[in-house]
Amino acid sequence: MKYSKEFKEEALNLSDEIGVKKAAQQLGIQYYTLADWRKDRKAALSRPKLSDSEAA
C-alpha cells in the first residue's frame, strides 16, 4: 500500500510523541512499516546536504 507524504509525516510525528508501537496500532499500520520510515528519516537527516554550488 502506498501512503502519502503527509500521512508519513504525521505518523512519524505521532511515533515521536507516543512511541512506534502505539502509533502503528493507532494508525492501523504495521510496526515494521513505521519503523522503516523512522530509519529512512534518520538516514536522510544524517546525509550531508549539497550546497548550491555543489548541486549545480
Rank of each mutant, 00 (worst) to 15 (best):
E6H: 12
I18F: 10
S53A: 15
S4W: 09
R41K: 15
A56C: 11
S53L: 15
Q25S: 14
E9G: 07
K21C: 03
P48Q: 11
E10W: 06
Y31P: 01
E6I: 02
K42P: 08
L45F: 07
R47C: 11
F7Y: 09
T33E: 01
A56P: 09
A43H: 02
R47E: 14
R47F: 09
A23L: 06
L34N: 04
P48W: 05
I29L: 12
W37Y: 01
I29M: 12
K42H: 13
E6P: 13
K42W: 09
A43N: 06
D52E: 13
E6K: 15
A44N: 13
K49A: 08
K42S: 12
S15P: 01
Q30G: 10
E6N: 12
E9A: 14
Q26C: 10
K22D: 14
A23C: 15
N13M: 12
L12P: 07
R47M: 15
Y31L: 06
D52I: 14
K21Q: 09
D40G: 09
S4M: 01
R47A: 15
L50R: 15
I29C: 10
E54M: 14
N13D: 08
A55L: 12
A55T: 07
A35V: 02
K5L: 01
R38M: 04
L50T: 05
D16T: 10
K5S: 12
M1P: 01
G19W: 02
Y3Q: 05
K5V: 03
A44G: 14
I18R: 10
K49C: 07
P48V: 11
A11V: 03
G28S: 04
R41C: 08
A44W: 04
D36Y: 11
A23F: 04
I18P: 00
S46N: 09
K21L: 04
A43G: 03
Q26V: 11
V20H: 08
K8E: 02
Y32A: 07
I18A: 01
L45A: 12
K22M: 08
W37D: 06
F7Q: 03
N13T: 13
R41M: 12
E6R: 13
R38P: 00
A24F: 01
D36K: 14
P48R: 15
M1D: 05
A23D: 03
Y32G: 04
D16F: 00
K42L: 14
G19Q: 07
Y31W: 06
K21A: 11
S46V: 08
E54R: 11
A43D: 15
A23M: 07
L27N: 06
K5M: 09
M1L: 02
P48L: 12
A43P: 02
E9M: 09
K21Y: 10
D40E: 15
L34H: 02
Y3T: 04
D52G: 15
N13L: 12
A23K: 01
Q25K: 14
S51C: 11
Y31I: 07
P48N: 13
K39Y: 10
F7K: 13
S46P: 00
M1A: 08
S15Y: 02
L45R: 11
Y3V: 03
R41L: 15
F7M: 06
K21V: 14
L34G: 01
K42A: 10
R38Q: 10
S46F: 03
A35Q: 06
G28P: 07
E10P: 01
E9S: 13
L27T: 02
N13S: 14
A11E: 01
K22W: 03
E10D: 10
K42M: 07
T33A: 03
K49W: 11
A55W: 07
A23N: 03
L12C: 06
